[in-house]
């Protein structure tokens, strides 16, 4: 070869050149696609929330959302108000769905910051749905969910998703057989305290007929993801308790 690839100067030049090329390439692609990706993410969020209140195109056992063209108009139609709860204030905000739970959680590490908890109130066939976004950790990475509840915190619908759980195991939390189990489960126990819902490996109720046991059937082989789901429900949904208490008093 004509070039001496062992020389220090060459190595450094090559490294600098590579960093510049790769850096510009990635930055250019990222910034040119950013708008589209953001739009896609917002549409997905609307689809997820609509899914939780039962607006979907499910056929058989598949999970399918309303189409992206319809999502914004359906979202405007069914979501009657969007609020966020900060400390004990309840603020109405038509862009509450843009609040990122992840960012709020990070900010909340600072004790002086009061976390904003978004809540979407929907009305469909004269039933009121309260949809809360929650977020937690699975085995590999983040997991999140949109849980639709009624005034008594009984679950009316749920959509779970994940960033990178093991395909075929933990990744199945976004499948019907797992999500549909949550419908009808109660978050509050008979005394009105927060009971949560446990993803249990040992409940003797695989068809989930007992809706008062605060348990759903776990997915075989994905203990940690399941524990993550239980923990996420416990930690994040509990925060909405005060709101629902107030709602009852009114």
């Amino acid at each position: 070869m004509a070039i001496n690839t062992d020389k220090n100067s060459y190595t450094i030049l090559f490294a600098i050149g590579m960093v510049i090329i790769v850096g510009t390439l990635l930055a250019a692609i990222d910034s040119s696609l950013k708008q589209r990706i953001e739009t896609n993410k917002i549409l997905e969020k609307q689809q997820n929330i609509l899914y939780a209140i039962g607006m979907n195109n499910n056929e058989g056992n598949s999970v399918s959302f309303v189409s992206t063209d319809q999502a914004p108009s359906l979202f405007d139609k069914y979501i009657v108000s969007q609020i966020y709860i900060q400390d004990d204030k309840i603020v109405e905000d038509d862009e509450a769905y843009l609040i990122e739970v992840k960012k709020e959680k990070t900010l909340a590490k600072d004790p002086t910051y009061d976390r904003r908890l978004p809540l979407f109130i929907a009305e469909k066939d004269s039933v009121r749905y309260y949809v809360a976004p929650i977020r937690g950790k699975g085995l590999w990475d983040a997991i999140w969910a949109y849980i639709a509840m009624d005034e008594n915190m009984t679950i009316l619908g749920a959509y779970f998703d994940h960033k990178g759980e093991t395909p075929g195991l933990g990744a199945n939390i976004n499948q019907r057989f797992f999500m549909d189990d949550f419908i009808g489960e109660k978050l509050l126990d008979s005394n009105g305290n927060f009971g949560g819902i446990k993803v249990s490996k040992s409940n003797l109720d695989p068809r989930n007929e007992d809706k008062d046991d605060h348990e759903v059937d776990a997915i075989a082989g994905s203990t940690i993801t399941g524990d993550g789901v239980s923990a996420m429900i416990k930690s994040d949904l509990r925060l909405y308790m005060s709101y629902f208490k107030k709602l009852k008093q009114e």
Binding site: K109, K137, W140, D141, A142, K163, G164
Partner: peptide, 9 residues
């Protein structure tokens, strides 16, 4: 990556 996703404080 685990350090990142598990949010080691």
């Amino acid at each position: 990556l685990f350090m990142q996703s598990r949010e080691i404080p």
